[in-house]
């Protein structure tokens, strides 16, 4: 195992503890459980599909994944600094960009692990309930975009400030849920809206499509945008590791 893989492995082990992962998967699996419960009634496939998309976007993509990603991302390097274990990571003959890349991949990976379980579970439940296996594509791409976006941008913020999680939650619940929803031109500044644009591209009939604001549906564009977000985050993290105090 090389140094980069070793950093990823230890960061993942720190972020994915058994209790934490069970709690997060249960939290993220709420949409699947809701559809499972609803499918035992007399709702038709169309109503079940609508319910699946409403809960998957409204709970998983808009709330659960961002919260999980913010916790993981702010902790990826922030926890090293706060728990005074940074010397075991930073005082090594490894370029700073490599430390930034490894911890960022671990942050996104920890979020994707939860997202994967939640999306696959929901996809299976909804697929059987509606007899349509196309139904899970939108949530899968939306979750991927959200995990990359939130999972990268909060890594440098976690390194730079002790209040990164609070800042993340304020961004999520104040900026994205209020301002970016209310003002259509602010939608491009919202990772949630970018994830929604990818989701809607593959599931155009969902009711949340109305919330896109000034954004156009487009999974490729959304993935490009979060790739740019990831690169900028990496650059800021590398800069912070080089220029800022690490203890």
């Amino acid at each position: 195992m090389n140094a980069q893989l070793a950093i990823m492995a230890v960061t993942l082990r720190r972020l994915i503890t058994r209790k934490r992962i069970i709690g997060l998967i249960l939290f993220a699996s709420i949409p699947a459980l809701v559809v499972l419960f609803a499918s035992t009634g007399d709702r038709g496939p169309e109503r079940l599909a609508n319910l699946y998309h409403d809960t998957t976007y409204g709970i998983l993509i808009a709330v659960a994944l961002p919260v999980i990603a913010i916790v993981n991302a702010t902790g990826a390097l922030g926890d090293e600094r706060r728990s005074h274990t940074m010397p075991f990571l930073a005082l090594k003959p490894i370029p700073r960009w490599s430390i930034a890349l490894s911890t960022t991949i671990a942050s996104v990976g920890a979020t994707l692990a939860v997202a994967f379980v939640a999306v696959v579970l929901g996809w299976l439940v909804a697929g059987f309930a509606t007899d349509s296996w196309e139904i899970g594509k939108g949530p899968a791409v939306g979750a991927l975009v959200a995990a990359i976006g939130y999972g990268t941008i909060f890594v440098p913020i976690g390194l730079l400030t002790r209040r990164a999680t609070v800042i993340g939650l304020i961004y999520l619940f104040l900026w994205e849920s209020s301002f970016a929803n209310a003002v259509a031109t602010l939608a491009p500044t919202s990772l949630n809206h970018i994830a929604l644009s990818a989701y809607v591209d593959l599931a155009p009939d969902i009711s949340a499509a109305d919330a896109l604001g000034s954004l156009e549906p487009g999974a490729g564009t959304a993935l490009t945008k979060v790739a740019v977000v990831a690169l900028v985050s990496l650059a800021i993290t590398t800069w912070a590791l080089n220029k800022r105090d690490l203890a």
């Binding site: 195992m1 090389n2 140094a3 070793a6 950093i7 230890v10 075991f88 990571l89 090594k92 003959p93 490894i94």
Partner: peptide, 8 residues
């Protein structure tokens, strides 16, 4: 061992 790996 982790520290040894980071020291390559």
């Amino acid at each position: 061992i982790h520290n040894a790996r980071l020291q390559k």
